[in-house]
Design a protein around this nucleic acid. Structure first.
Lengths: 149, 149
DNA sequence: CTGGATGTCACTTTTATTATAACAGCATAT
DNA sequence: ATATGCTGTTATAATAAAAGTGACATCCAG
């Protein structure tokens, strides 16, 4: 697994918070659900904090969402994690002496931008609440929220 | 990792063919425009051949498009190069003992599929001809098609 | 035949991403 | 105040996907 999973993991973290309000959630505990290490979780949360999706206090294991799940879109999370990085990548190493190589890539950029906008429009229409609702359907209504201190 | 540029490079190759009809195009020559090595170009062309976008004869340096550029979409090229590989990747290594981890990823899949469909719908609307037309605008009307044997 | 190109495979190199260790800074409890 | 536990951040290592490359059998044209 070396495909980028930051977006998926970030959603996982946010959903985890939303599903366990008021519970003591250390990065260690979240890491167990994502099956990774606490430092990575804290890095994710750091990005989410910069994106103003999450607030937390240093030394205090109670991170909380900055606003309700219905007002956090997948695009918000994408921006927080990936910034302006596009989903499709161009080859920027073509031969600069070859007009075809340079200008084909310039032309492609316009179309890649269109694709990016289409994807982002879709992301903007999906909220964390939607994902949580779907989660509850899949999980068979919250049979997993026990056993947490 | 490395950012994948196969799609961009494949479009580059196809456009190169379309722009130089009837010209002797060895993988070596195309590689110079893409600024890579001939073997990689031949690998790209191999995938394009499997996708039925390109035909060529072994030992014969005259690859040609299987159909006109207006009937080759960016989605066709994407399929040939990436198959069913999605543009967004899920984390498949979450803790299987944690219902949240498993089911959040299941829920995400549905939404990632939506995003994939939106992106692909856009790709299906873009043809190689469109890209070539834009290329000509950028290049200032075919000032680069000389000097080829 | 000979020369040149393709098609394919195996291997190497590169590099984005995740994994992890270390530690200063802050909160809480005793 | 001090001890403990957790956070936030940085630096570095390990992993793995992608491109880069060499080799060679195969096929075409002259």
């Amino acid at each position: 697994m070396k495909y980028p999973t930051k977006l998926s993991d970030a959603v996982h973290v946010l959903a985890f918070l939303a599903l366990h309000p008021g519970v003591c959630l250390t990065s260690q505990r979240i890491a167990e659900s994502v099956q990774t290490n606490p430092a990575y979780i804290r890095q994710l949360m750091s990005a989410l904090r910069r994106g103003e999706l999450l607030t937390s206090v240093r030394g205090h294991p109670h991170p909380t969402l900055s606003r309700e799940p219905g007002r956090i879109t997948l695009l918000d999370v994408y921006r927080a994690m990936e910034g302006e990085k596009p989903i499709l990548h161009q080859d920027t190493h073509t031969n600069p002496d070859c007009g075809v190589g340079v200008n084909i890539q310039l032309a492609l950029r316009d179309y890649y931008d269109e694709i990016q906008r289409a994807a982002e429009a879709r992301m903007a229409a999906i909220t964390l609440q939607d994902i949580i609702d779907t989660y509850r359907q899949k999980a068979g209504i919250s049979s997993d929220e026990e056993g947490l201190s």
